[in-house]
């Protein structure tokens, strides 16, 4: 029996390591071109005409889902969104069955956001189409790392030897993990900064410098990436209060003074104003937070183009 699995010769994007450095450079080049498209009157190219992309989101997400949706539509693909609230997930269907049912409708790519690490990787083994990891637990968020790379690359021209600090809840952050992998691939020097309770045990395996002092983390940095802190972590006993967290780990204008004068401030969003980032810093001249969002669409267009543009060899 001919199955969709047999025909599938495409590929997946589950983690940064699925891409070579050359491919990432190609994605950057392509994303810049798609950024141009997004700035035109007609923000659309016919590249993925006739392709179907399903956004399967098991966690609430505005930014990533919308970003993938716009990216797909600007490539002329048909994009369908399925979120837990409107699917059979709430009726108790297993993840496998949901993926197989979507796969049976023959999409060309499924973008999966899931709270469980490895869920997209498992889906990739059964879906018979490209699977793109839209964020899985604390494991990986490769398209976020790629759009962050683009944002840095656009401003700095190169990532090599840049000093980058990632500040916040490293333990639970897929954004941190994917960014560390991508930044290290291009020779950046990465420091992570968090209270010890928000760093993974075995953090040395990540190949980064570690500090618990935000001034030390920010000093002489070219790029400072802030991560969102969730109040849920407080209930887990990982820190006593938002006020105390903020006192030690908030990026304020004062703390920022020790960074390089041309420092770039990034945040994957949504930001907690006054908690991990001071309002004036978030809105300040160094902030690239909205630029990241713009690049999100362009980079996801590049990723969809790479994965869905031509599956038959």
């Amino acid at each position: 029996m001919e199955t969709v699995e047999k025909k599938f010769r495409g590929r997946h994007l589950l983690q940064i390591a699925d891409l070579t450095a050359d491919e990432i450079m190609g994605l950057l080049n392509t994303a810049y071109k798609f950024k141009d498209v997004s700035e035109r009157e007609i923000k659309k190219v016919p590249t993925l005409r006739g392709k179907t992309i399903v956004n399967l989101f098991y966690e609430p997400s505005t930014r990533t889902r919308t970003s993938f949706e716009i990216a797909g539509k600007r490539l002329s693909a048909d994009v369908i969104n399925i979120s837990t609230s409107s699917s059979s997930v709430t009726k108790g269907e297993t993840f496998k069955d949901t993926v197989l049912n979507i796969a049976a409708m023959r999409p060309d790519a499924i973008v999966i956001r899931h709270g469980s690490p490895g869920a997209p990787a498992y889906a990739a083994t059964i879906a018979g189409c490209s699977v793109i990891n839209g964020g899985d637990g604390a494991n990986a968020h490769p398209t976020q790392a790629l759009l962050d790379l683009m944002t840095i690359h656009e401003k700095k021209g190169s990532v090599e030897n840049l000093k980058v600090a990632i500040v916040g809840d490293i333990l639970h952050s897929r954004v941190a993990r994917s960014n560390i992998n991508a930044l290290k691939m291009f020779g950046a020097d990465v420091t992570v900064c968090a209270p010890p309770t928000l760093l993974p045990h075995g953090v040395n395996a990540l190949g980064v410098k570690v500090t618990h002092n935000i001034r030390e983390a920010v000093a002489d940095k070219d790029v400072v990436m802030m991560l969102r802190i969730q109040t849920e972590r407080m209930q887990q006993g990982l820190f006593p209060s938002l006020r105390e967290y903020s006192e030690h780990f908030c990026l304020s204008a004062k703390v920022l003074k020790s960074a390089r004068p041309d420092v770039l401030i990034m945040h994957p969003g949504p930001i907690n104003r006054g908690v991990e980032i001071a309002s004036d810093v978030a809105d300040g001249p160094y902030s690239l937070i909205l630029s990241q969002v713009t690049h999100g669409v362009a980079m996801r267009m590049a990723v969809l183009y790479l994965l869905c543009g031509g599956a038959e060899s």
């Binding site: 604390a138 045990h201 075995g202």
Partner: peptide, 14 residues
Amino acid sequence: EGETSARLGIKGMP
């Protein structure tokens, strides 16, 4: 819990 769980972002059992 250890280096592998740190890399994979999987919750560890020490």
